[in-house]
């Protein structure tokens, strides 16, 4: 094996074929409204933790569907459960309840 001083750059592409949706399906059963998110971003805009920790409910919902569960769970650690996001969500998603369900489903194996 030679050292050329460079390596094959990893691809940034999300391959949806390889995303395991098992947990998300479970989440959807518990929280049917999770699919109602239309990524407007008002939850993130109003989040008091977001500007310091990167917490964003919008990104959590997206990441969970793109195979980036670890990132999503890590992000949720910044949440203080203040409920501001529930107040602003135009789709009426109970985000506080959703966050707790995400923690329950995805934290089981201590990611």
């Amino acid at each position: 094996m030679m050292n050329f001083g460079f390596k094959i750059a990893p691809s940034a592409t999300i391959n949806l074929d390889n995303v395991d949706m098992e947990k998300f399906t479970l989440l959807h059963e518990m929280e049917p409204d999770v699919y109602k998110c239309m990524a407007c971003g008002s939850c993130s805009a109003t989040c008091p933790a977001g500007r310091f920790t990167g917490m964003s409910v919008r990104k959590v919902i997206l990441d969970l569907q793109r195979g980036r569960e670890k990132e999503a769970v890590r992000m949720l650690k910044g949440c203080m459960l203040c409920g501001k996001c529930s107040m602003v969500c135009p789709r009426g998603i109970n985000t506080r309840h959703l966050i707790l369900s995400v923690c329950r489903i995805y934290n089981e194996d201590k990611q």
Binding site: A12, T13, I14, N15, L16, D17, A39, R58, L62, D63, R66
Partner: peptide, 12 residues
């Protein structure tokens, strides 16, 4: 492109 994730996406 998944413009919300800012990443290319592909699916079969």
């Amino acid at each position: 492109e998944d413009t919300l994730a800012g990443k290319p996406v592909k699916v079969t």
